[in-house]
Design a protein around this nucleic acid. Sequence first.
DNA 1: ACTAACTTGCACTGAACTGTGCAACTTAGG
DNA 2: CCTAAGTTGCACAGTTCAGTGCAAGTTAGT
Lengths: 218, 218
Amino acid sequence: MPSDSTTPRTRAPRRDAAENREAILLAAASILNSDPTASLEAIAVEAGLSRRAFYGHFATRDDLLRELALHGAARINATLDGHESDDDEGSGDPGSELALLGARLWDEVDHVRVMALLTLRGPQSTLLGDALAPLRHRVRRLVQRGVDAGAFRDDVPVARLSRLIESAAISVLDEGTRHGLSSAEGRRLVVLSVLGIAGFGHREAHDILTRTLTKAAR
Amino acid sequence: MPSDSTTPRTRAPRRDAAENREAILLAAASILNSDPTASLEAIAVEAGLSRRAFYGHFATRDDLLRELALHGAARINATLDGHESDDDEGSGDPGSELALLGARLWDEVDHVRVMALLTLRGPQSTLLGDALAPLRHRVRRLVQRGVDAGAFRDDVPVARLSRLIESAAISVLDEGTRHGLSSAEGRRLVVLSVLGIAGFGHREAHDILTRTLTKAAR
DNA sequence: ACTAACTTGCACTGAACTGTGCAACTTAGG
DNA sequence: CCTAAGTTGCACAGTTCAGTGCAAGTTAGT
């Protein structure tokens, strides 16, 4: 069972327990992705455990969902921080930054598919909304800068445009999970779609893509 | 209860029964939109009926879902036929046609939101896919023409691009149902988004929009 | 006004699922 | 090897929901 910080432990927790916990999170992400109402039994079995053992790791279903959300959101937000220091203050041009952000996120988002679905509607939608707030703010600031600089379209309100850009990225995830999409193809498509919604023509978008992604080979 | 074609009717069915049936479909569309797992009770009540009366109109839950799908798909496909005679053979330029198609569809799609969600995943996803096939073929043909004519982007396979365009339209529906969007705003946003994914820059897209929608005032 | 068409409320069955308690078993840490 | 940590299977309670039968009520055709 989960270690209580005040419990007088006579022995360290077993190593495999932690692994099983991870397995459950993994299984949950995978299964809930295709059926958000899947039973705990299905998830437990997919993780190689019994339903009963599941309750050794998570108290309730909502517990799992919450964990899953925070888990995913943490990864996303960590990605944001990774390279933020050199472009947060708005050094590069907004188009390139949007491209870079999209590409970076793509590699981190097997999990977001679930979150996107959960965010879409349902009981705990607000939970995810909060967890993803940093990302949303980041996008919004970027869009604002893009519009101010005359690079992005100015015929749609910034808040709306930000959400549409977000949706465009999710659409690509959708396309990927449904019709197959390699990592490289997906990254490219995310960038092109997102730039398209931002207002760039496909030739411009292509230029930005090549310019940015070769430069960003680190 | 639903009239059986072989039943020896002694009297015409009551008028209000048909109205109630419509009310159920309407309520279902509205409620399932925000919660696809909503109970029949909730739907029946929203329609102003008792749960028990619901079963006088639909035998099972799946029955309702199927009806709902076909209902929506029929509207969509009817919209396609409406003005098809003069542009099916590819007279106008693809950009304008895509804009027009998007705008036209927008006015018909309160119902499609449900279908989109149901299509997204779930047991009966194939059902909807089939029902929407005509629309998809139409879009795909149009995209093919746009690419051939050098108007649309050619850096994404036609099939994929078609699906992404479809997703872009649905994203706007999403935005609309979640953050409020008037008919006029929505129509405009659909067109701009769709053109953006197709590869047009926002200035071009804007030109096409004004050109097409004023002309299409009929 | 007569009566079929429709609605309602209630009670019930059956299914699926969540969450718990418990005894027995297996595994890994010391 | 010893024992706590973790797992398993089973039984059980509680909930929610789909679907059905029936008796009694209301509404709208004719």
